[in-house]
Nucleic acid binder design. Structure first.
Lengths: 237, 237
DNA sequence: TCCCGATTGTCATTTCTTTGTCAGAATGTA
DNA sequence: TACATTCTGACAAAGAAATGACAATCGGGA
């Protein structure tokens, strides 16, 4: 799904926009000020940026220019009071793709953001969930053959193990609770002990981890659940 | 067929809207004032609500907020005079799906109501997520990964620490008492010593503050509690 | 301004919770 | 029935939270 970065310091607007965009299925990122916002642009690479012109830290104008000069492909929609953009020329100079003046209708903003994303959609290619193989570390998972290749030798997974692995791969990098796993992998009607999840995890680790005693791909989130990490943490900077 | 609830006290508008929507095949319910309107929302569970902002009884603003907080899936289209929505924040806070300013074209209203219903049906199946990351200072909080990036390195938070952080972010800039935190973060039935809160705060500061000895983001409110400040105080006006 | 009591910061220790791991029982399947 | 798979319970190990003690700090009143 598309991601939207909202750079806005007013918590009320933050909340309102988050709810609005989330309800439409977008993944929302929020930055509190200009500097954090600029960092988030690079970290998140959103499909669109909604930018308040009046910001603490780096000013909205500077951010807009910077995004446009360094990552021109990301559309920027500016929020501004009428007085702030007396003439549209200024906005165009900034390089903004579109703008909405306050007060604005949430619907209108959404429409403009969607339009901007659509206009920009030339390079978009979603990762498909019906992929044939997926590899991480020294593992190659083959979804059609339903088997796993580890360092050149085949590892046999049971049906449950494979289903769990697939779930993790589809939610790579997300912290997931045991309850979530029980629901998604086992099915809503099953409610075995939580030890069941641990057991399956244990076996996945033993079969797939380079060193099962020190798991790097299947991380424990104490008090929460587990998280699948295609790249071990040490690789991340 | 779809049902529409019209909350509006002007009999002429009532009649006009009723005729209009009925002609399009909708089942129309009309409420005279705010209280009746709120009751009708629960009783009828309409596919859309057309809501006048200026109402006797419960104000239109309150109704809108209430519907959105308790039955977010019902789209609300607000009728308002231009002067009533001068404040951008107000409009956003209400959470209305769309709005039409008086005087309005009946056709336009109809189109917007239909669009809202259609949108709602499309998105009804999608799970609504909230924000994925929130950034402030040199911190990026990732809610799905359940971790924090500080100046390029990952900081591990415990489940409680993360919950507290989330609460602070959701209440940025608000002073909160220890009791409030104990209730919201620990749960209503728990009443550990207040030192517990201080301890967790200490750890949050040590993990997130640029200089834990001189906290800028997690401020102490002597005699009250704490306050999360996304921007260091000096930057604010 | 200075002092005193109240509030908060901090740390070490204890207590509690969660997770890892294993063995055996139960279940399903060929 | 025999086999593989999954579930359960037990216990150890790891991790997190709560507690209590004491120092540092703050704020209001003398």
């Amino acid at each position: 799904m598309e991601t939207i970065l909202v750079i806005e310091d007013d918590p009320r607007i933050q909340k309102a926009l988050t709810r609005q965009f989330a309800a439409e299925g977008y993944t929302v990122h929020v930055s509190q000020d200009g500097d954090a916002g600029m960092a988030a642009v690079f970290a998140v690479r959103p499909h669109a940026v909604v930018l308040d012109l009046m910001l603490p830290g780096l000013s909205g104008r500077e951010i807009c220019k910077k995004i446009k000069s360094e990552m021109n492909e990301i559309p920027v929609i500016v929020l501004s009071a009428v007085s702030e953009v007396a003439d549209k020329v200024l906005l165009l100079e900034l390089g903004a793709d579109d703008y909405v003046t306050k007060p604005f209708s949430p619907r209108e903003l959404l429409a403009r953001v969607q339009a901007a994303i659509r206009r920009n959609q030339r390079s978009a290619s979603k990762p498909s969930l019906s992929m044939e193989t997926y590899s991480f570390g020294n593992i190659v998972v083959n979804f059609t053959r339903m088997d796993v290749l580890k360092e050149g030798t085949y590892v046999i997974l049971t049906a449950h193990e494979f289903k769990l692995l697939r779930y993790f791969i589809e939610h790579a990098g997300h912290a997931v609770t045991r309850e979530k796993l029980l629901n998604e992998v086992w099915g809503y009607q099953n409610y075995p002990t939580t030890r069941t999840v641990d057991n399956l995890l244990l076996r996945l680790r033993q079969k797939l981890e380079p060193d099962p005693a020190n798991p790097v791909h299947f991380q424990t989130m104490h008090g929460i659940g587990y998280r699948f990490e295609p790249q071990p943490a040490t690789v991340r900077q």
